[in-house]
Design a protein around this nucleic acid. Structure first.
Length: 268
DNA sequence: ACTCTATCGCGAGACGAG
DNA sequence: TCTCGTCC
DNA sequence: ACCTCGCGATAGAG
């Protein structure tokens, strides 16, 4: 849904829903759902020959890219060494409702491709690198190769019917995993009971691991899950046009006032 | 002066050696 | 603790 | 028929 500042909103409006975690060790023995597509994008963008000058991904003897393999392997091993049991969730078909948003992204990518062309001709290395990152894609093959790797490692893989985040949330809601480890706050909207942020970044980037409890967030906001979903839709999501001038702050006020999204719309 | 929203540009790994 | 180079 | 997202800065509306 892409609620812009959902995490920030929760930090202000429901701070008790967020807990600071000391280290990865806190999740030893636990199953954690992870959005694989997100990881792959990061690996493909960041794992490159070298930062100054060249912008090529790592490749094997046949010229196939291997950055995603290297990244996924080392990250997963680190998790396993800490006793964490990752469950990787792969994206399925994008939801119909998101097509508009995707078209916009494609537009931007085409722009970046043009920029890349220009930067190459101008010999501007910095611009070339930047544009290259913006045009990076994860292909079906990258996904399949990664699934093979994880399968060989004995790590469970789940194919989501549609959005990976939604399936991560469903796994948590149904008690299959302890939490969804993601930076995407929308996972809460999809009903994940527990969301863990910065699980990977904590060590390498000195970030604090944060655990968000959906139940406590609802308690503190004093709304039901249905109202929370309505709140997220009102705040603006990828699935429909936004209401002009309505963000999180206004959305929560309207909802407290009228109770449901239907009543809110009637009043407008 | 202040609060909230809309838009745009940018960034995204992990490890060991020194 | 930080920067830098390597990972294929 | 090629599928990820968040953040901060900044400008503008009310």
């Amino acid at each position: 849904m892409g609620i812009k500042g959902l995490m920030k909103f929760l930090q202000d409006a429901a701070p008790k829903a967020i807990r600071e975690i000391d280290s990865q060790q806190a999740y030893t023995g636990r199953l954690m759902a992870i959005d694989a597509s997100m990881c792959l994008y990061q690996f493909m963008i960041m794992i490159r020959e070298n930062r100054s000058g060249s912008y090529q991904n790592l490749t094997n003897a046949e010229g196939q890219e291997t950055s995603h393999i290297v990244g996924m392997l080392s990250r997963t091993i680190r998790l396993m060494e800490n006793g964490i049991k990752p469950v990787y969730v792969f994206d399925g078909k994008p939801p119909e409702l998101k097509l508009g948003e995707l078209a916009a992204r494609r537009q931007k990518r085409e722009q970046a491709e043009a920029n890349l062309q220009a930067a190459v001709e101008a010999g501007n290395a910095e611009e070339v690198l930047k544009s290259t990152k913006m045009t990076t894609r994860v292909t079906k093959e990258h996904n399949e190769q990664t699934k093979t790797l994880l399968g060989l490692m004995g790590v469970p893989v789940v194919d989501a019917p549609s959005e990976a985040e939604a399936t991560c949330a469903a796994l948590c809601r149904d008690g299959k995993v302890y939490a969804a480890a993601t930076e995407d706050a929308d996972c809460l909207t999809f009903g994940t009971k527990v969301l863990v942020r910065n699980l990977m970044a904590a060590e390498s980037q000195k970030k604090q691991i944060l655990e968000v409890s959906l139940e406590r967030a609802l308690e503190q906001l004093n709304i039901s899950m249905d109202q929370f979903i309505d709140f997220c839709i009102l705040s603006g999501c990828d699935y429909c046009d936004t209401l002009k001038g309505v963000g999180p702050s206004t959305a929560i006020k309207l909802l407290m006032q009228h109770g449901t999204i239907e009543k809110v719309i009637e009043e407008l």
